[in-house]
Design a protein around this nucleic acid. Structure first.
Lengths: 196, 196
DNA sequence: ATTATCTATAGATCTATAGATAATGC
DNA sequence: ATTATCTATAGATCTATAGATAATGC
């Protein structure tokens, strides 16, 4: 049943990709090695040829999940550079994002549990959280670099908090209202059309 | 070793109070019945005379944790009704709150994991999350009731997201910068002194 | 007599490892 | 010969229950 070197690398990638989904959907504690391997189509014993431990996997999966959501953000910026912030905020605060944590922002999926884990997982998560802020900086307004950084920090906080609150309230109407209110508040200073 | 009726009620309270702390410090999965009972000074077998199951306990602990943080907010409002919002935001976005999740906002402690649990835990958490928004409404500005509600939603999102981000970055300087930036952004429209 | 707590353990779950198997790659 | 995967299981942990113990409360 042994596979070729290329296939082995592909298997590792499949495990990682699936883990990056599952960890965002169900959380770190709920992610089981046996479950994961079964979803990938292998037995759980084979896992330890690809990863040293579950901790090792989760750190790699968190890093990969961040890479995925970062790539999505880059695509959105490239699609409409003039309105980059509006694009980013609109997609982040969408119903689709609220409903599908597995393919969404890793910070929003694991914000309260990942930092508690410390170690490699906590470090990978900390890097990703700072990355979320950093990626906003080029697209926000501000008198100087420090002001733009602070604006990015506040916007990241509002986006993250709004998705988390919307997922928490468990009432579609209230969830929508939270996302809409947060979006309006963030984009208010950036309104181009109407000069209120 | 049996205790009197009053003592029994007090024991239940002690278990609940400790659970409300522990669940915010370590999360739902990490909270163990045996650990909890040991901290309260009892053996784990006695637990099931007070609670039907761990799920039952966690739902009650979440509700109690919300009651505690709600009480804290009420105290802050009563202490200085004219500047209620400033008081609430300042204390929520403080270093002390970032460093001590066990005695802080339950939404900020369990935002990503509690909604996944569904059932009684998810329901208790959803109630608490809406409560956080509702308690802000009387203290915010807005043209009408709907606008004030939206303002409360946006502020709650920013507060929650800022604490979560600050706890995630694991760098005291950046954490402080996030809290300060979020506080400034929220209170900007409420500045009384300087008329910028 | 009732019941709060304790002791002991059943039963389930999960990470990790050991040894067997079978295909790759030299 | 090496190694990716599988089978089987060790070892740890955690929830929950059963039965014993001892103090309360009628």
């Amino acid at each position: 049943m042994r596979k070729s070197r290329d296939e082995t690398a592909a298997t590792r990638e499949r495990i990682l990709a699936r883990a990056a989904e599952m960890v965002r959907r169900g959380g770190i504690e709920t992610l089981g090695v046996a479950d994961l391997m079964q979803e990938v189509g292998l037995t759980h014993g084979g896992f330890y040829r690809h990863f040293k431990s579950k901790e090792d996997l989760v750190a790699a999966a968190v890093a990969r999940a961040f890479a995925e959501s970062g790539e999505g953000m880059r695509r959105r910026v490239a699609a409409d550079p003039a309105r980059a912030l509006e694009r980013i905020v609109t997609s982040y605060l969408s119903e689709a994002h609220r409903r599908d944590p597995a393919h969404g922002c890793t910070v929003a999926a694991l914000a309260t549990e990942a930092p508690r884990h410390g170690g490699d997982v906590g470090a990978a998560f900390a890097r990703g959280a700072r990355g979320l802020i950093e990626r906003l900086v080029p697209h926000v307004h501000g008198a100087d670099a420090a002001a733009r950084h602070d604006e990015a920090r506040a916007i990241a906080a509002t986006m993250l908090g709004a998705i988390a609150l919307a997922r928490a309230v468990d009432d579609p109407a209230e969830a929508r209202a939270i996302l809409t209110a947060a979006k309006a508040k963030i984009l208010e200073p950036y309104a181009m059309g109407a000069a209120v």
